[in-house]
Design a protein around this nucleic acid. Structure first.
Lengths: 148, 148
DNA sequence: CGATTTCGTTAGCTATGCTAATTAAATTGC
DNA sequence: GCAATTTAATTAGCATAGCTAACGAAATCG
């Protein structure tokens, strides 16, 4: 398994992450939803009703960008803007039943795709993979230095 | 260390890849180059002169998309189109010295950032990480089922 | 030598990101 | 309690990045 210099690992990890997500995007496409739309819908499905600003923050985009994503989800009948009774400026964005169903199906498809890729790994490699994933989860919990 | 069911690993791997790239994008921004531009320049710097079609294929985009990326790199003085003497239709795209320098500096910065994140890993975790990265590289080499 | 294929470009569409400016509602302060 | 400020969302307009379709020019094939 070659060198273990950290910068070298970092470079390859970066590259492999890019290629992995590129591959998985194809499954998202099958759902008829782009990555950003699928991701926003996912937050709605798993995170419950939220305001536009909250959703924008969760997806790390600005409010106008999120507004347009919601427009698209709404036009497709996958999400809905509802009035917030306690704050008439705000909107509550919720996934529709159709949106929830589509997302869960798409998610299952994407995971089947990735699972199929991972089936090429040996048992030992799978164990290492599982360990590495949780390591990365831990490391990424540490907040970035600033500007957030 | 948690469950090792493949679909579960797949789900978490997907999620962690997304969060990792989100984090690293910040370093790319510091270089003044968008992700796609930095990525294309990287191929030029490390892969030597290539045709537009080859570069498009390497980056998994269509030729017109790559042409515009090269336009931008050229306008910034980071790459150059050269004539291919053996095929007058083709162009040879090369990184300029300035482009090479910028990319190497940016790459160093990004890798310092990721390296800093990875420093939180134990020696054993780093070894597992290196192994997992090459496993994933191997698995992703397998072509997708179709449409490519 | 004509037909086809290949390389690159141009034109034009969509989607996703942004900032700036606007409207409406909530909050703060006097 | 009303004016000023802040906050939520939208609108307008710009840049980047992806695509397909259509084209010109060069290479290759019959």
């Amino acid at each position: 398994m070659s060198k273990d210099a950290l910068p070298d690992i970092a470079q390859q990890l970066h590259s492999v992450a890019i290629h992995l997500l590129r591959r998985l995007r194809r499954s998202d496409d099958q759902m008829g939803l782009s990555g950003p739309r699928a991701s926003a819908l996912s937050v709605l499905v798993f995170g419950g009703p939220v305001s536009l600003a909250q959703l924008a923050k969760a997806e790390q985009v600005k409010p106008p960008t999120m507004a347009r994503l919601i427009d698209a989800l709404e036009a497709a009948g996958l999400a809905r803007r509802e009035a917030d009774k306690s704050d008439l400026r705000a909107v509550r964005i919720v996934a529709t039943t159709k949106g929830r169903k589509l997302l869960l199906e798409g998610r299952a498809r994407r995971l089947r795709e990735l699972t199929k890729i991972l089936e090429g790994a040996t048992a030992a490699e799978r164990a290492a993979l599982a360990g590495t994933v949780s390591t990365l989860q831990r490391l990424l919990k540490q907040p970035p230095p600033a500007s957030d």
